[in-house]
Amino acid sequence: MQKIFPLNDQSITVSFGDVIDLNINRNAQQLYRKILELNDPYIIDVVPTYTNVTVFFNHKLISYNEMEDKLKGLIEELTSQSDEVKTKIIHIPVYYDGPDLERVAQYNHITTDEVIKRHVDGQYQVYMIGFLPGFPYLGGLDEQLATPRLNQPRPKTPAGSVGIANHQTGIYSVESPGGWNIIGYTPISIFDLEKEQPFLFQAGDVLKFYEISKLQLDEGQQPEVEWLDENY
């Protein structure tokens, strides 16, 4: 059952649950797309997260109550129909030579080769974008790779660092302080202002990693993208 509540006087959140779950996230994604399709001038921004969708609206054009009623109407429509959506799969090259690769291996009592194999074998759902511009929150990390954050965060983690924090894996989009275990680096820019579409990922995408050599890292690489038809 959905819950609907204010974030503040000019934004409303719809919540589909309180656990990280693919189906709950798909519900949120579905509502997110529906709101975008409205393309209404009173909608300023829409933010999908793991379980929620938050709408920021222009209070000069629509009242809180009217906005809430609109959302309730859209939620009704959701339950009665399913979306046909193309899933975007993005393949990300990684040179697995991070300073914490050994730490992740030791913590999980496996070899570093096994860490790489398991990380490459995974298929990761982009549940949401947050923390840093373009930073994907990914679901689907192998249980055998889960490793607690570093006790002492690093003052600088370079953009392109691929890391693990507890049950999550992610890629740093910009240089930032951080406590993630860094297992490797990707030459792909996931946030690039020079590009027409500066953000590589969107909530709803699927991500897969593949291993590259130091030489390939230094040469630079392009992400590979494929599309899959899927019925939600």
């Binding site: 974030l7 503040n8 934004s11 959140t13 919540s15 309180d18 656990v19 990280i20 933010v47 997260t49 793991y50 379980t51 929620n52 938050t54 920021f56 949401m128 947050g130 923390f131 929150y137």
Partner: peptide, 10 residues
């Protein structure tokens, strides 16, 4: 808490 949207003033 599962990460969710926050805003200016939260």
């Amino acid at each position: 808490i599962i990460s969710e949207a926050v805003t200016f003033g939260t």
